[in-house]
Write a protein that binds this DNA or RNA. Structure first.
Lengths: 146, 146
DNA sequence: ATAATACCTAAACTTGACTTTAGGTCAATA
DNA sequence: TATTGACCTAAAGTCAAGTTTAGGTATTAT
């Protein structure tokens, strides 16, 4: 069993955030002794899930929905499974988009390295887009497609 | 040259968002004819940069700073280069974190498949963490490390 | 005994990134 | 001629996700 302060340290979160999550109903089975929250292993796993689902793009409300399903038992296994299947796709798409962002950034890194060497952008402007070195051209194209 | 409406369509953005970016100073060289904004290729590339930098986690203020550097010419090449080097790291870290999130999600997908088959979580609870199948155990551990 | 800590609540405040509203100009179409 | 459509502004409103404030309790350290 952990107090809110201990949990805050474990997860590097402000206490106020954990209270806020509780107020929003994210710990449906959280117990208290004379008003004071007692966090068990269940709540720690819940917090891990909250962090995971938040990073995957869910809102607090939606996470609350999921936590409600959890406390409804075996009848919601299908729903929970579908949620994760869906979030899997979402996160895979997020990663793909970030890979594209990374190509744009890599292109710009190269661009400014050249600009620093040249002292201006005259030569570079001539190169774009067709006369770029092969590797750089690929970055440029992936970053500019659509 | 494009009107704001054309740009909005090209980028699938609401007109109000583009006006907002302009108000925040994100198009330092944008020209107008009798009050009406005229977007050139420069502004389109700026918009691509805005989207890229936003996805990499920069705030509008910071993007504005970058745009100011752009209009200050060659004296800011170094700063701009450093910004991209830094954002490259940030985005690489973001991707790593999302890979970890993905492991948690994959674990949960497997978990609920099992729970659906079993009709309950009894057997599963016994398996965690040591008696999990090798592949699943790896997902579980990566998702729970730290 | 008093002061410092760790906990509690309700309610107001903050922040960033937009979006909406209310009002107006100008050109073209019915 | 009137109304429709595309543009404009300033200012207010919205939304999520916290954070801060103001006030209170209970336990422990000096």
């Amino acid at each position: 069993m952990y107090t809110i302060g201990q949990v805050a340290k474990l997860f590097h979160l402000p206490i106020s955030t954990i209270r806020y999550y509780d107020k929003e109903g994210l710990f449906p089975t959280l117990e208290r002794t004379s008003g004071i929250r007692k966090f068990s292993e269940t709540e720690l796993e819940t917090l891990r899930m909250i962090e995971c689902l938040k990073k995957s793009g869910l809102e607090i409300k939606e996470i609350k929905q999921f936590m409600e399903w959890c406390s409804q038992g075996s009848s919601t296994y299908e729903k929970r499974h579908e949620l994760f299947l869906h979030q899997q796709e979402i996160v895979e798409q997020k990663i793909e988009k970030l890979e594209k962002v990374l190509d744009m950034i890599r292109f710009k890194c190269w661009y400014y390295e050249q600009a620093i060497q040249d002292g201006n952008e005259e030569r570079l402007k001539e190169l774009i887009p067709d006369a770029l070195p092969e590797k750089i051209k690929k970055l440029y194209e992936r970053a500019h497609e659509e």
